[in-house]
Amino acid sequence: MNGEAIIRCEGIAKSYFRDSLEIPVLQGLDLEIPRGGYFALMGPSGSGKTTLLNLIAGIDRPTGGSLEVCGYRLNDLDDDELAGWRAIHVGFIFQNYNLVPVLNAFENVELPLLLQPLSRAQRRARVLEALALVNLEDRMWNFPRQLSGGQEQRVAIARAIVSDPRILVADEPTGALDAKNAEEVMALLERLNQDLGKTILLVTHDPKAAHHARVQIHLEKGVLDRTVEVNR
């Protein structure tokens, strides 16, 4: 890895506790991801890939090691600081889209912008821009129930990028989609990486989806198993 790492994990460990039983998920993992990278985290269930994604995205805390993302040592941030950090630096894409059902596409995309000091007009311009990027301007007044799965995921991607974060984390973004929609979503992510320089970290079981990434990181029982550069 080079010195422009946007994500730096040093000896990252994470254990969960069930009653008094400690269940180690990540065990001293070292990893560096460069700015603008497109990485797929792969591995069998329980290998710790989603846990690693959650730690990097700042929605979970490591039990050991040091985690630096976008120049911030996440271990040192309290809950509110971490929330503020996420609002600026990370965009989330979930397997089940997780759109708010009572808000239309426009309002769903607008949500992260409510946290920023922007006027209504500025928010509107940013939302339209994001919806244009995912090619859904014509569906912006539709509610999630009025959209197909692929369209919902594209709205979710627009929501993830609208605040212009440096990192996009996607947990099985094609898991609930058919092959055609999955391909469209992956192509969109690839475009965001190449055209906008977003660093993308993707968790997937799907080799086709993983093939869109430039690097595949394979985890096995909480440790780094191997890193594979994808040749296209």
Binding site: D79, W85, F92, P112
Partner: peptide
């Protein structure tokens, strides 16, 4: 529950 978690993941503080 999930929606609340999504809001917080997006950067809304617990207080918000």
């Amino acid at each position: 529950t999930t929606e609340v978690a999504v809001f917080r993941a997006m950067g809304f503080t617990s207080l918000q």
